[in-house]
Amino acid sequence: MHADVTQFNYGMITPVLAYLTACLGGALGLRCVTRSLRRTAGGRRGAWLALGAVCIGTGIWTMHFIAMIGFSVTGATIGYDTPLTFLSLAVAVLVVAIGVLIVGYRGASPLHLGIAGVITGGGVAVMHYLGMSSMHVAGHKSFDAVTVTLSVLIAVVAATAALWAAVNLRALWASIGASAVMGAAVAGMHYVGMAAMNVHLDGPADPLAADSQNLLTFLVPVIAGPVGVLVIACVIVMFDPDLLVGGEDTKVRPSVAVGPDGAAAAGDWPEISPRR
């Protein structure tokens, strides 16, 4: 039996909260990558890139499951598989980290940006469909191939644009604007992906079934952890004054590589520190 589904069981509350969460994760991630490209080297640079990846990946994942709070199947109770849910979180952070490290260390050339965008966007799509697979209902799910393909393309384009913005935008307001666009793209990918799914119940709809699993028993506690990570990252970013003021538009060039004859290697430039 084909079941009626809705993405907006609580009206516009969940879409708006999901969008804002994706924007927060994107904004924090962009600022962390900006910090990594300014006057930091070695382990500190890697640490900022890693924190940026955690922020973006966690923001995307949290957006997904906040949006899922508003998902319901008429006449069926929804449950969630805990291991798959947390596996999807790990995938989100991992693929974003791969993309961020590629552009953070290799630069945003068309080749590197394309590779990083495909890996990250494809991984985000995997995260999304893993999260959907973690949802259990008394029936089976089917997917429209065309809509699924569209959602993956949106994810790849959004990831590529986000990685480009991470290494090219320095000004605070530019990063905020980019994060707003990123949030819209990520949320759009989610709802397009959800539109690809059809639910067919194994039996007649149960009029006494709850619309969704008790939010206090699973989704809200699960989401609370990643939200806490974003709050901690926000505090770290706020207490790093170099990230918010001064020298944001200064382009940092790689350190000089000196050859055996004492001359700088071709294509290398001295590192330029922003003025204070």
Rank of each mutant, 00 (worst) to 15 (best):
A174Y: 07
G203P: 01
D144N: 15
G188D: 12
G107Y: 10
L111M: 04
I223N: 05
S212C: 00
A166K: 06
S142V: 14
M182T: 15
H200D: 11
L201N: 11
G104P: 03
M127L: 10
L150H: 07
V93F: 00
G183M: 06
D211Y: 00
N168H: 08
A125T: 14
V93Y: 00
H200K: 05
G107D: 04
I223F: 00
P221Y: 02
H128D: 03
L111C: 05
N198W: 08
M182Q: 12
A97K: 09
A108D: 10
G139Q: 07
A161K: 06
G107L: 08
L113K: 15
L150R: 11
N168G: 09
S151Q: 08
R106V: 06
W164S: 14
L113C: 15
R170W: 12
P226M: 14
L111Q: 04
G203R: 03
N168T: 15
P204R: 01
G123N: 05
V103C: 01
P207M: 04
V186I: 15
A224E: 03
V220F: 05
L84G: 10
V137F: 03
V156K: 06
L153C: 13
S212L: 02
A187W: 15
A158N: 08
D206I: 13
L216M: 13
A178I: 05
M182F: 11
Q213D: 09
R106D: 03
A195N: 13
V167R: 05
L215Q: 13
L87Y: 05
T120H: 09
A174H: 06
M135C: 06
F86T: 03
A180C: 02
D144K: 12
L101G: 06
V91I: 12
H112A: 14
A92T: 12
L201M: 10
L216A: 08
P226I: 14
G203S: 15
L153E: 08
A159P: 11
V100W: 02
G177R: 09
L219G: 07
L215G: 02
N198E: 08
L89A: 02
A180F: 07
S151C: 04
A196M: 01
S133Q: 13
A125D: 01
T217I: 04
G121F: 07
N214H: 10
